[in-house]
Design a protein around this nucleic acid. Structure first.
Lengths: 358, 358
DNA sequence: ATGGGTTATGAGAGCGCTCCCAAAGAAAAT
DNA sequence: ATTTTCTTTGGGAGCGCTCTCATAACCCAT
């Protein structure tokens, strides 16, 4: 029904193709009367410009891709990604951009998706969730021509554009809080050990312990993979070593671990205190409200899109970096706090700030 | 770096543009030697065809859109959507299709997104999550030329293509199970009252009650909105009326409601039994494992993509319908079952089956 | 009036592919 | 050997836009 083209509108309005194009693209150089006439025709005919033709001619697709690589396990089981996706999607709307989602499930998917990502005339830019170091996809994308922004610190930072949360500082603050409350046997449940996220949070944990002059008992550090179940399993391993506080690298793992603690008949936070990471909505509705590091996940997605679009429009030299802050939200699970109101910890947190590029 | 076009490859291989195009598109009518030569050049140069040009010429974009309308609240707070998205994304991979995600957050988003959806040369087809009846977006999309498949029964079914789960039957089975176990005061927490999903599940509930000759106490039916918190709030309203069993129209609401029951110091399932709906992964890891209706969510997404692609290729006449079955998974929260193993209920469930189009 | 400068409009040449049709070459049938 | 048929290849005409450049119309100052 709606198969008119620019030319048809032009004919109907008695103007040239160019003029209609100007009206459609809101160019200022159109006479008021002409503009009105053309707009009317467009309105009544329900004309919409053809996206493919426009992309071909303008070399712009107004689409960006969000790529979640294969090595990111626990994809949609962790609420982190939905929140991120939401932020990215909303930012895209604001920028009149279309979001394409690439979920890489397995090796086959990767082989199938890669050429689509590399194809010109498809995506103006790519947001890539940081995965493992041995990610072929990562390498192919890095060495391609598409503007690329990595979400989370990549393994090889060299001249890679990325945005991340200050995981080291945040983890350090979380741990310091437990130390300050007097816990003696502080354990940690890590995320997938090969992710930079987990590595950085571990570093923060260790920094805090070192600064407090505490030695780290290796048997109090157990590896998880960010999933609820891995938290549960990790806690089962931890319990025999009698930790009195746990820093879990994700809320979801904290929840799993708390389940294990309760099954063992122990009290939270009296017997075991908890600090999580993420501040998912559920953290504040748990029977024992979770003390956790608030990640501005949705905001992170928005910032990522903003930065990527900036890169698309202004080029990617020099390499872009953006590090957002994350703040500790104190609730009930860490004990030592008679007050239920969330307390924002520390003055060094200034919300999200753009740090100078490296 | 990679700015070669078909013509360049042709020149390098000493053949014509057409021949290279045939090789790229795996046309059979190419000599073996020629094909090999061209493939080699493509390999070494790392050539990828331009998507926009291809779309323009072929009138096919190989992209489909997944649209979550504004009226669908609780968007990414409910794990339902991530699972659905995952199914859709994986099916797209299998079909060499790209998935575009349109999250409509508010009225502005809707105004912004609608033209993009209607634009030709953008999407080959659209998957639209069913929302409210007063959805302008829905109307605009229905009356457009794009192949459209609605996820969930729409309010106006007339000649609309849609795919859904048999909510009525599933809810009826869930309720019947509670009746069979001897519960006398069975309550229900509904989803957002204006959604067909919730309406159908209510209908199933009522059918089951009617067939068992039980009257329905209106004070035992409370409206929720599919969110965890709404389940909690609904249960608080319900408790004074002393229900002994609750059919919650989503797992997430069941979890909220169970939280309210436990806070009131009551036992599950001894004092209040529960049946949920969705069978999210969390349902089986809850302290009291949730009896629930298993929805094949990911599978639902896959089937939807299959059907949509079929529509794109073969046309949408007559209107397509697909109804998938959902089965009751019996665990601990409904009581009356000494056995923890999940029991698949009823022989009438045959997994997902293609019902004849209406 | 008349010239310089600005603004509004049109024409044309692509953007990089697909797809139809014609031509040439090879294979099969007579 | 000759015709017919099939396979392989090339050329050309778009697909529906954008964008540069030329032209026409217009404004004010002189």
């Amino acid at each position: 029904m709606n198969d008119l083209k620019l030319e048809d509108i032009a004919k109907l309005a008695g103007v040239s193709r160019s003029t209609v194009s100007r009206v459609v693209n809101a160019s200022p150089n159109v006479g008021a009367a002409t503009r009105k006439r053309v707009e009317k025709i467009i309105q009544t005919t329900g004309y919409h410009p053809n996206a493919a033709a426009r992309s071909l001619a303008s070399q712009r697709t107004n689409m960006i891709g969000l790529v979640i690589p294969r090595t990111t396990s626990a994809f949609f089981t962790d609420p982190y990604f939905p929140h991120l996706t939401q932020g990215v999607a909303f930012a895209c709307n604001n920028h009149h951009m279309t979001l394409s989602l690439f979920l890489v499930g397995n090796q086959e998917d990767e082989n199938e998706i890669t050429p689509r990502l590399l194809r010109r005339g498809m995506l103006d830019g790519i947001l890539l969730q940081s995965g493992n170091s041995d990610d072929m996809l990562f390498r192919r994308l890095i060495s391609s021509h598409v503007p690329l922004l990595v979400l989370g610190r990549p393994f090889e930072e060299k001249s890679v554009n990325y945005i991340d949360v200050d995981n080291i500082l945040a983890a350090k603050n979380a741990t310091s809080h437990l130390i300050r409350l007097g816990y003696q046997r502080i354990g940690m449940i890590t995320g997938a050990i090969r992710s930079t996220t987990s590595i950085d949070r571990q570093a923060g944990f260790k920094q805090a312990m070192a600064e407090a002059g505490k030695t780290i008992d290796p048997s109090l550090i157990v590896e998880g993979d960010f999933s609820e179940n891995s938290g549960y399993v990790a806690m089962k391993k931890l319990l025999p070593f009698r930790p009195d506080a746990i820093f879990a690298q994700s809320d979801v793992m904290a929840i799993g671990a708390m389940r294990a603690v309760q099954e063992a008949g122990l009290q939270i936070p009296k017997d075991v205190a908890f600090v999580g990471f993420d501040d998912l909505p559920v953290a504040s509705t748990l029977p024992i409200k979770l003390t956790t590091v608030h990640q501005p996940i949705t905001h992170f997605g928005i910032k990522a899109v903003d930065l990527l679009i900036d890169m698309i429009e202004k080029g990617t030299k020099p390499a872009k970096r953006m590090i957002l802050d994350a703040e500790l939200i104190i609730r009930d699970s860490c004990g030592g706090n008679s007050n239920n109101r969330p307390i924002v910890q520390g003055v060094e947190f200034e919300g999200s700030a753009l740090k100078a590029p490296a």
